[in-house]
Simulated scan of single mutants.
Amino acid sequence: MHAQAVVATTAAVLGCVALLPPVHEARAGIAVRPSVIAHRGASAYAPENTLDAVDKAASMDVLWVENDVQRTKDGELVVIHDDTLRRTTDAETVYPGRAPWKVKDFTAAETARLDAGSWFGPAYAGARVPTLKAYLDRVEHHHQKLLLEVKNPELYPGIEQQILKVLSNEGWLDRRHLDGRLVVQSFSAASLQTVHRLKPGVRTGLLGAPAVGDLRRYAGYTDLINPSHTALSSAYVDAVHALTGPHGTPMRVFAWTVDDAVTARTVAGYGVDGVITDKADVVRRALYRY
């Protein structure tokens, strides 16, 4: 097979539309095509939630990336996991008198001054906390797909509408993106209800593992249930798949955060539709043998 064809085939396997019905082998085997999702980008190999982590995921031929979105004091949407700048930037050094260094207490300009890479390693010194717009542009540049988490929505009233506006402005709410390249997730069911009310075409995922008896209540506005791998079983995945989501297709399951081959094969055997991982190469080898 020619090299170009190999690349195309690889992309097709990793980039399968996770919202389509998966094909599974027997329970003792491995799910044929769960998507591999790079958690906060390729976060085992580059500083999480930075453009470098997106680039690294792309270099590994991983087509799904996950990120976290929060809001600065002056209303800029930025990509960062914690509600404080302390762990993944040099905010303590640059702004020593402003503990506890909450994202919401800093302007976009102040946040843009921070080094978000040196904590990970000297090779990434000078990496910045990206705006959501910059992050979307980079994901689009690589023709990747995005699992976007609305982080701490209780801290940022109206953030759902702002996120949808940025997504719209950047061309992410057209049919091509909505059908297979975008999922908005949150631990907050209320936040997902807001997203669904404002833009019903957006597919959403609820983080966590609600009780099986409670799953049906989410089916009106949630397309995926995304639990920790420690909360999963074949029976639980089957219970989710038995329900129809708001877009007329079976609800799906993305499991997090899976960083070893044994666990990857286990959750794939349960029938999950996606595996969220810091180590996409490890999971890919475990599930696809390359």
Rank of each mutant, 00 (worst) to 15 (best):
L167I: 03
R197P: 10
K104M: 10
A28P: 04
T230Q: 13
R71Q: 03
T244V: 03
L198Q: 06
G41C: 14
Y270I: 03
V36I: 14
L20I: 12
R98G: 04
K199P: 03
K199D: 07
W256R: 02
P122C: 06
A127M: 04
T93V: 02
A5G: 09
A91K: 02
R289H: 15
V79E: 03
G213D: 10
S118N: 03
A231E: 13
A46Q: 09
K102S: 13
L207I: 08
W101Y: 07
D278H: 07
P96A: 05
V166K: 05
R138S: 02
G274K: 01
G41A: 13
A5F: 14
N67D: 12
F187S: 04
T10F: 11
T194A: 14
V258G: 00
G208F: 00
S186F: 01
P200V: 14
W119A: 12
L173M: 07
S59Q: 12
P153I: 06
P210K: 11
E25Q: 12
S35W: 10
G213M: 08
V272M: 06
Y45Q: 08
E66C: 05
Q161N: 04
L232V: 07
L14I: 10
E66P: 03
D105I: 01
E110R: 01
H142G: 02
P153W: 04
D115Q: 00
V258P: 00
R197S: 15
G220I: 08
A211K: 15
Y45V: 07
E48W: 11
D68T: 09
V69Q: 08
C16D: 11
P47H: 11
A28M: 08
A235M: 10
E76F: 02
V17A: 15
K133G: 06
E140D: 14
V23Y: 14
P200E: 13
A31I: 09
N152T: 11
A11N: 14
E110V: 04
V6F: 10
Q70H: 05
V69E: 06
E48C: 12
T88Y: 00
V139G: 01
G274I: 07
E160M: 05
F254S: 04
K151V: 08
G220R: 10
L192G: 03
R27L: 14
H2L: 15
H81G: 07
Y270A: 00
Y218L: 11
H143V: 05
A235K: 09
H177R: 15
D83H: 11
H247F: 13
V253L: 06
V283F: 10
A91D: 00
V54N: 13
I159D: 01
D83T: 08
V267T: 08
T266V: 10
Y290S: 07
T72W: 08
R98D: 09
P34T: 11
G117W: 01
I276S: 03
S118Q: 00
A261M: 11
A239N: 05
L77V: 04
G126M: 06
D174I: 01
D68S: 11
L232Q: 06
T244L: 00
E154M: 00
L164T: 01
T194P: 10
R176P: 03
V54K: 12
R138G: 04
E48T: 14
D223Y: 15
V267L: 04
L287Q: 00
K73L: 10
V183F: 00
D52Q: 12
A99R: 02
H2I: 09
K133C: 07
G126I: 07
L178K: 09
L132G: 07
H141E: 12
A112S: 03
T131W: 11
V150W: 01
